[in-house]
Simulated assay, not measured.
Amino acid sequence: MRLNSDRGVQYRAIRYTERLAESEAVASVCAKGDSYDNAIAEALNSLFKAELIRNKGPWTGINNLEIAVAEYIGWYNHRRLHSETGYRPPVEAETIYYSKLPTIKMMERV
């Protein structure tokens, strides 16, 4: 049994919740839009906090933090090597994955 002491007290961005709804994504248990019971989102949140928020601060203002977040996302997607993807950055691994999928041909309208 997993206990989450932070359930219900974590900040939930309105945009995050809206994007879940727009994508017709199913929220996990607890509050709608809460990523803390979703293993992938939880792992990413932990990495984000460890690699950027805790290790690169303190922040002098929201503008500095916003720039740092944008830079982190660029680094994470294009340069960070991941063991689960054969030590490739996510963008490269995703490109390889989609290149191996069969091509879906659109049916012509009659």
Score class of each variant (00 low, 15 high):
residue 1 M to G: 12
residue 2 R to A: 13
residue 4 N to L: 13
residue 5 S to Q: 14
residue 6 D to Q: 11
residue 7 R to S: 15
residue 8 G to W: 11
residue 10 Q to R: 12
residue 12 R to G: 09
residue 12 R to H: 13
residue 16 Y to W: 11
residue 18 E to G: 06
residue 23 S to N: 14
residue 24 E to K: 12
residue 24 E to Y: 07
residue 25 A to Q: 05
residue 26 V to R: 12
residue 29 V to M: 07
residue 29 V to T: 04
residue 31 A to F: 09
residue 33 G to T: 02
residue 34 D to E: 03
residue 35 S to R: 00
residue 39 A to M: 06
residue 39 A to Q: 05
residue 41 A to N: 05
residue 41 A to K: 01
residue 42 E to H: 08
residue 43 A to N: 06
residue 44 L to T: 07
residue 45 N to G: 00
residue 46 S to M: 06
residue 47 L to E: 06
residue 48 F to S: 00
residue 48 F to H: 00
residue 49 K to G: 00
residue 52 L to H: 02
residue 53 I to A: 00
residue 54 R to D: 01
residue 55 N to S: 00
residue 56 K to D: 09
residue 57 G to M: 04
residue 57 G to T: 02
residue 59 W to R: 02
residue 60 T to C: 09
residue 61 G to M: 12
residue 61 G to F: 08
residue 63 N to S: 06
residue 67 I to N: 07
residue 74 G to F: 03
residue 74 G to T: 01
residue 75 W to K: 13
residue 76 Y to Q: 11
residue 77 N to G: 04
residue 79 R to P: 00
residue 82 H to C: 08
residue 83 S to W: 10
residue 84 E to Q: 10
residue 85 T to W: 03
residue 85 T to V: 11
residue 86 G to Q: 13
residue 89 P to T: 05
residue 89 P to G: 07
residue 90 P to K: 05
residue 91 V to N: 06
residue 92 E to R: 13
residue 93 A to T: 04
residue 99 S to Y: 09
residue 102 P to K: 13
residue 104 I to C: 13
residue 104 I to M: 14
residue 107 M to L: 10
residue 107 M to Y: 07
residue 108 E to P: 06
residue 108 E to W: 07
residue 109 R to G: 03
residue 110 V to A: 03
